[in-house]
Simulated assay, not measured.
Amino acid sequence: MTFSKPPIVEAIFHLVVERDSDFEREVLNEYAKYITQTFPIFNQEEKRFLKNEITVKLDDLDNITSSVTNILEGYKLSSNDRAKVIQANTSSFSFSKLHPYETWDIFYEEANKFWEKYVETTSATRVKRLSLRYLNRIMIPFEKKVIQLHDYIKVFPEVSDDLSMIISGYFMQISLASMTYQPSQAIVNQTVGSEEVGGTNGDSTFIPLIFDVEVFQDVDLDVRDSSINSIFVDNLRPFKNDIFFNSITEKSQEFFQ
């Protein structure tokens, strides 16, 4: 099922990698240079962290030494319009596509292209985790200042009928294990944001319902193993779709047509 106005505000393709102990972190600079030179729309931001080591000798407590090391962690590469973001780190790679999201084929082809160049340039050896994460933002009409969640979503918190109260805000997290797409797992976060004004004439009131789905699978694969592609395409993507489409109502789907 596809929509002309999908509620996706960010889609993330993410892999955790494993390297040999003698990996030279500065090699990441070659990847960042390739991206910014080949795709001039990308800007480069270096990410580093400080490591502080303190040495104390028990037989000479007055002689305490310390050293601070500035260590390269990776690069954040963002397109000029901030719609595409690559995170090329020592232990992971991710590609994010922010609004507007087009299609899965376009998203995955582009993400995979940047991933394959990351493998080639930085000599990653093995993959330990594969994941897809989709952040959806569903704008719910709020004219009467009350939302009936069950009108828009099938998974939500409930308040006992014995309490004369309504939910005014919430954050809910659910961990799921797939029976169909084993051994994939999922984490679903759901919350509502603050009241917003919008609509054609800017005279309507909405509440954003955030539906955040991350599906992942822990693996131990060579970075060039063909099963990486099949896990993303035949396992993680349909698992993510099952969660999303079976969690929203037809009334919500009308917003995306």
Rank of each mutant, 00 (worst) to 15 (best):
residue 114 F to A: 04
residue 169 G to V: 00
residue 108 Y to F: 12
residue 52 N to S: 13
residue 98 L to W: 06
residue 35 I to W: 05
residue 141 P to S: 00
residue 51 K to P: 14
residue 55 T to I: 14
residue 9 V to L: 06
residue 248 I to D: 06
residue 157 P to E: 06
residue 176 L to Q: 05
residue 77 L to E: 01
residue 168 S to H: 04
residue 166 I to S: 13
residue 23 F to Q: 02
residue 67 S to H: 13
residue 227 S to P: 04
residue 45 E to M: 15
residue 168 S to R: 10
residue 38 T to L: 13
residue 150 H to T: 08
residue 106 I to F: 09
residue 113 K to Y: 13
residue 127 V to M: 01
residue 241 N to Q: 09
residue 167 I to F: 02
residue 69 T to H: 10
residue 118 Y to D: 02
residue 121 T to D: 03
residue 208 P to C: 02
residue 139 M to S: 03
residue 8 I to F: 04
residue 17 V to I: 09
residue 64 I to P: 14
residue 26 E to P: 06
residue 40 P to S: 12
residue 83 A to N: 14
residue 151 D to M: 05
residue 137 R to W: 02
residue 10 E to N: 03
residue 35 I to G: 08
residue 50 L to K: 03
residue 167 I to W: 05
residue 119 V to L: 11
residue 52 N to D: 13
residue 217 Q to K: 11
residue 238 P to V: 01
residue 249 T to L: 07
residue 41 I to R: 09
residue 121 T to V: 13
residue 169 G to M: 00
residue 181 Y to H: 08
residue 82 R to L: 15
residue 8 I to T: 05
residue 13 F to E: 02
residue 4 S to C: 03
residue 177 A to E: 15
residue 194 S to N: 10
residue 17 V to A: 08
residue 25 R to Y: 14
residue 127 V to R: 02
residue 218 D to C: 05
residue 53 E to H: 07
residue 209 L to N: 07
residue 192 V to G: 01
residue 93 F to C: 09
residue 96 S to H: 11
residue 245 F to G: 07
residue 200 T to Q: 09
residue 66 S to M: 13
residue 168 S to V: 02
residue 67 S to G: 14
residue 1 M to S: 11
residue 67 S to V: 15
residue 46 E to C: 11
residue 236 L to Q: 04
residue 166 I to L: 11
residue 146 V to W: 05
